[in-house]
Design a protein around this nucleic acid. Structure first.
Lengths: 209, 209
DNA sequence: GTCTATATTTCGATAGAC
DNA sequence: GTCTATCGAAATATAGAC
């Protein structure tokens, strides 16, 4: 005769509830912004009493900070698809595909990031000045190498990066506007068409096609 | 002997104060979002007592609605630069220049618009479904005509429009991130370089160069 | 049309029993 | 570790004198 299932360890309960809260928080912060979001809304969506949120995250700002940090991690991982490519067609093509996939799978995360940056990055300014700046500098050198090797036109690398970010994240941040003009949410085929359009226009735009 | 300067008419006072309030509101809504903005902050920035705001705009939401509507008007005016052009090089080139100029001159307006759309367009949903949808349909036909005339590659017109909006508005909405990476606000030369980069990459991307 | 004072509501945060 | 009840702060909105 076996015992009843062992209750979850403290660390497991903690992790489970943290995940639950973070998922709800991402959605609420994306829908309402930091100021418009309320702990009560997040608690309701997570199915927990409001007081529990303050047990796991001392303040609303702590919770928001974690949401933004998590998004930033996803962002950086996608960036790896650009490296170790023989040229811009493969590297930038893969980067566009990865960024479009994130826009599709994590639209709320993209919106929270956009919200944070739009309002002056009060929480993640240090990330912009360190991690993002270093990453950007590395990719600029990568692109300059491709240009020097004659694999693409001599475009300004920084503005190419801005265009890549803008074009891909637009499908998440302005997804509601796009869905309205589209007459409904994008289908699988719509997303494929969108990704192909962005890839074709940008790769041809930098003279890589 | 002349009389003392005539006091302003009621309608003049009204218009003057409305403008004052709307300018302050645009800035505060852009910096804090709808939820984060407070009537007190807007009143302080406009140099008026808080109660006066409620005299001119009954509720915080009414004030916000006016700000978003005003931005939408600026947006539509810029769109006219695209029409009556012989081809995409002139038409889309002029549109990019107009949109970049707006991103530079009205970054707060662009941010409030982005904020509104990102959060599901609760206030201007009807504009998206009527005015913007009609405008978009018209430009799609314009682009299709250019494609049929062999003046540009057969790109998907909708996704070209999204890329135009994304690439240009990015310089307003993510201006803080760009400034951080740039080591400071963009100079005149930086803006010229940015505009040229966007124009070159997109026009080449659609096979018009 | 303006402005002070205040009513009313809402929200973040906490205390304390379980 | 959970949850009810509540405190205290802050914000929207209004009343009413000027």
């Amino acid at each position: 005769m076996t015992e009843a299932p062992r209750p979850l360890r403290r660390t497991e309960i903690r992790q489970q509830n943290e995940t639950l809260i973070l998922q709800a928080a991402e959605k609420v912060f994306a829908e309402a912004g930091f100021g418009g979001a309320t702990m009560q809304l997040i608690a309701d969506m997570a199915g927990l009493p409001k007081a529990n949120l303050h047990y796991y995250f001392a303040t609303k700002e702590d919770l928001y900070r974690r949401v933004v940090q998590d998004i930033f991690e996803i962002w950086l991982q996608a960036a790896e698809s650009m490296d170790q490519a023989p040229g811009p067609v493969e590297g930038i093509g893969a980067y566009i595909e990865a960024k479009m996939e994130i826009s599709r799978r994590h639209p709320d995360g993209s919106k929270v990031w956009a919200y944070e940056v739009m309002h002056g990055a009060p929480v993640i300014q240090d990330y912009l000045e360190t991690t993002l700046r270093e990453w950007t500098a590395g990719r600029v050198r990568l692109i300059e190498g491709w240009i020097a090797a004659g694999k693409m036109a001599p475009v300004d690398p920084e503005h190419l990066l801005y265009m890549l970010w803008a074009a891909t994240q637009h499908y998440a941040d302005f997804g509601h506007q796009i869905a309205t003009l589209n007459g409904g949410p994008l289908t699988d085929a719509d997303w494929q068409r969108a990704t192909d359009s962005v890839k074709t226009m940008i790769l041809r735009g930098i003279g890589a096609l």
